[in-house]
Simulated scan of single mutants.
Amino acid sequence: MNFNFLSPVSDNVLAHNELLSTQSLGRKLRVHSKQKGIPELQGVDIALLGVIENRNDVNYIGEAFTLDEIRKSLYALFPGSWNTTVADLGDINAGESVEDTYFALRETIEILIKKHIIPVLLGGSQDLTYANYRAYDALMPMVNLVNVDCKFDLGDSAKPIKNNSYVGKIILDEPYNLFNYSNIGYQTYFNSQEEIDLMERLYFESYRLGEVNKDITIVEPVLRDANIVTLDLKSVKGAEVSLKQKFSPNGLDGKEICAISRYAGISNKVSSFGIYEYKPSHDDEVTSMLIAQIIWYFIEGVNCRVKDDNFADEKSYQKFYTLVESHELVFYKSNKTGRWWVEIPFLAEVNNKLKRHTLLPCTHQDYLDACNDKVPNRWFKAFQKNSV
């Protein structure tokens, strides 16, 4: 197995770990160290992976960073009542070129996912999501990407890739594997009207910060349908993070970002999760602790996963039929978890790769709306996309 790209967790972090309670998370992790090498991966469910790469940040001025403070904060937390085994595989250091880092990241993610291990990526710039997405080329035909961010990051795809334009590259670069892109927490004044219009034209989903603040549960179905979840720390409001990390007075608060992370963990489909745009500073404790708690909630979510989407067994769900604007909508409700799905009709003449997307996660509210003759927005966008 080729994990040559990985460098071990620093001795500084390991020395700190030795001083922690034997009940702490750090003492229960399988850690990649200089002394013992890469840990045994048999039985591991989640692997923590640092990526020391930020050269494609539009504001890059040559600054280096480490993830030691995040690790210290995470190791010091206590695990929940989990059956989940977690490993810390250390870091992928910056390669000769950014493309080398992308290659190393892509290879490593592909190996881990094939072993049914969920990589949790800690990174510099968010363009690393592009390499994460490309790892799926050999794994599945179509991918759903969810970006928790104040910006869409569509950018100008004609220019070289940057952390504010990687989504444009994902959409336009072959092979075309992107089925759906969703943004959670965007703030209108950070996005040009052209980008907002383009999101609509492509039938992608976007949830404004105000909508998410009002009712965090609306994002659960979006995350339930995601394969990759990528989180930009600039989406967090400035008051919640340390000096260098501050970006905007408005944003998601700590509780909301952790709830989103837990929803991502609970999703049976999410197979990689990334936290990006980390900027260490001298008063770093708050940011590193927030990231540690985001990771903690993701692990907690993975531990609470329930297989409730087996619709072959009629005893496991209830089925509801509604008629909306001449469309018959068929809803499914899991008897196990109470989660809802809606069926997307397929057009026989459309020959595409999307046959697996027959059921779309939705909310109970979507069903109530359909009963009141209102077409659920998620259903409408998915239906339009399948009709293109």
Rank of each mutant, 00 (worst) to 15 (best):
D197R: 12
D197H: 00
E200N: 06
E200Y: 11
E200L: 09
R201Q: 02
R201I: 02
L202E: 00
L202F: 05
Y203G: 07
F204C: 02
E205H: 05
E205V: 00
E205T: 06
S206Q: 02
S206F: 04
R208Q: 06
G210M: 13
G210K: 11
E211S: 06
E211K: 05
E211R: 05
V212S: 07
V212A: 10
V212P: 02
V212F: 08
D215T: 12
D215E: 14
D215K: 09
I216W: 03
T217I: 08
T217N: 10
I218C: 08
V219W: 06
V219S: 00
E220M: 12
P221E: 05
L223Q: 14
L223T: 02
D225W: 01
A226V: 04
N227R: 00
I228N: 13
I228C: 09
V229M: 02
V229S: 14
V229G: 12
V229R: 10
D232M: 01
D232N: 05
V236I: 11
K237N: 05
K237V: 05
A239G: 00
E240C: 04
E240M: 06
V241I: 08
L243C: 03
K244E: 00
K244T: 01
K246W: 04
F247L: 04
P249E: 04
N250Y: 09
L252F: 05
L252G: 01
L252V: 04
L252P: 03
C258M: 11
C258Q: 11
A259C: 11
I260G: 07
S261D: 13
S261Y: 12
S261T: 03
S261H: 07
R262I: 08
R262G: 12
R262S: 15
Y263G: 04
Y263Q: 11
Y263R: 15
A264N: 03
A264F: 11
A264H: 03
G265Q: 03
I266M: 12
I266H: 05
N268I: 00
K269R: 06
K269S: 09
S271G: 10
S271V: 02
S271Y: 08
S272C: 15
F273Y: 13
F273T: 04
G274K: 13
G274V: 12
G274W: 06
Y278G: 07
P280G: 15
S281R: 15
H282R: 15
H282V: 13
H282Y: 01
D284H: 13
S288N: 05
M289D: 05
L290G: 07
L290M: 14
A292V: 08
I294T: 10
W296N: 14
Y297Q: 14
F298D: 06
F298E: 07
I299N: 08
I299G: 13
I299W: 02
G301H: 07
G301P: 14
N303P: 00
N303M: 11
N303T: 02
N303I: 04
C304F: 14
C304G: 08
R305C: 06
R305E: 06
V306M: 13
K307V: 01
K307G: 07
D308F: 07
F311K: 01
A312C: 00
D313E: 15
K315A: 15
K315L: 15
S316M: 12
Q318V: 09
Q318A: 07
Q318N: 11
K319C: 10
K319I: 09
F320K: 09
F320Y: 09
